[in-house]
Nucleic acid binder design. Sequence first.
DNA 1: CTATTCAGATAGGGATCACTATGTCAAACC
DNA 2: GGTTTGACATAGTGATCCCTATCTGAATAG
Lengths: 220, 220
Amino acid sequence: MNGESDEPARRRLSRAEAKARTRALLLDAAARVFARKGFTGASVEEIAETAGFSIGALYSNFGGKEALFLELLSHRQTDRIAEAAQTLDRHEPGTGEAAAELGRLLLDVADKDIDFAPLQAEFWLYAVRNPDVLDAMAANLRAPRQALEGVISTSLAQQGAPAEVSAEAVATVVAALFGGLVRQRRIDPASVPEELFGQALKWLFAGINAGTAPAATESE
Amino acid sequence: MNGESDEPARRRLSRAEAKARTRALLLDAAARVFARKGFTGASVEEIAETAGFSIGALYSNFGGKEALFLELLSHRQTDRIAEAAQTLDRHEPGTGEAAAELGRLLLDVADKDIDFAPLQAEFWLYAVRNPDVLDAMAANLRAPRQALEGVISTSLAQQGAPAEVSAEAVATVVAALFGGLVRQRRIDPASVPEELFGQALKWLFAGINAGTAPAATESE
DNA sequence: CTATTCAGATAGGGATCACTATGTCAAACC
DNA sequence: GGTTTGACATAGTGATCCCTATCTGAATAG
């Protein structure tokens, strides 16, 4: 956009910089307020106030409450899944290291980032209630899901898992388990100790490999 | 068609019977509307109208919108978990029969009972946002969770699983996986085929049994 | 049959909400 | 330096919502 912007020491923010900053602050505030009050429960006034701006600033940067929410839905949805994929990439799954690190990740998501899970739940509810948004959401999720799938596919090959085992299926199971455990931990933390997620993954991968040799009752 | 329990041949409903009927109809309508619009998004007018009554009828039977919601939260929360436990009780887990039946149960919950998962999500969000309700919800979930735990405990013993494996942990994993897969199927049905839940459980239980012999790096 | 009770209907009040019209002041431009 | 532009603030509007006060008519009681 700008051709001659090489000035390092700029004390005052330019117009575009200031606008970008307010946009980002409004998005952060919106994420917090939507997570705490829900989409319908959140008011644009509270969002603007939380960000330190007025309602006018919000409507100057976004089309409205729904547009602001959809912006979050599109861009803040999938960070944590990619994180899990990277963690699995660094260590081989089925080992104690990967299990321990994934346990820590689950605690981070469930306990530290307390707005994350409720916001995801709001996204899911909104998508389920608005079919057009649902398609967009499924499309957004496909990329990080495939990243996870790739990592899992590699691991399965390394471990000598049966060829019939679909990496996509395993990725879906891992993601569903992660989300389910995060939610359960918010209700009853004691029932989801730090090691549980890693332990479950150990069981899962061990079971996949164990399925190679023995004659199963079913042929699929 | 008359109830033979009390007075035979009563064509008109007594006062108490009519009131109980109205209450039940209002609760059904509330479950539908809350699931489709969310707690804040649902209006008492729409709930009353859906049930075929007026706003006055609603306030004559319940303390208000929140009381109505909490009544649902307390009584309609845990039916499906108990169902899963019964299914697991009829067949041994790890077998094809149990897997197939649980797959069918998941499809029922995800596809047929389209209001179930959104309503559960609303319950979860409300509980997360209201700590006192959260405790009550955790207490409500404990009973069916222990039923599931009991079934799993028996199965683990039958299969000769390692003694260190906690039935509570496995029950938590199974429940979290179930919920996670139901939600994922609502977003992208193709990614959660009918057999996936049963397949994942097969893997899980096979992995638990496989874990008997080898020396694990961790021990707790 | 008359009186009483009460489930449910109706109407309205007070508050909140999303959004808009308009104003203001500093940055960008000539 | 004067003009224009545009980011953000302020005030107001119509709609909606939860809840309450009041009313009606039928089921119960005497």
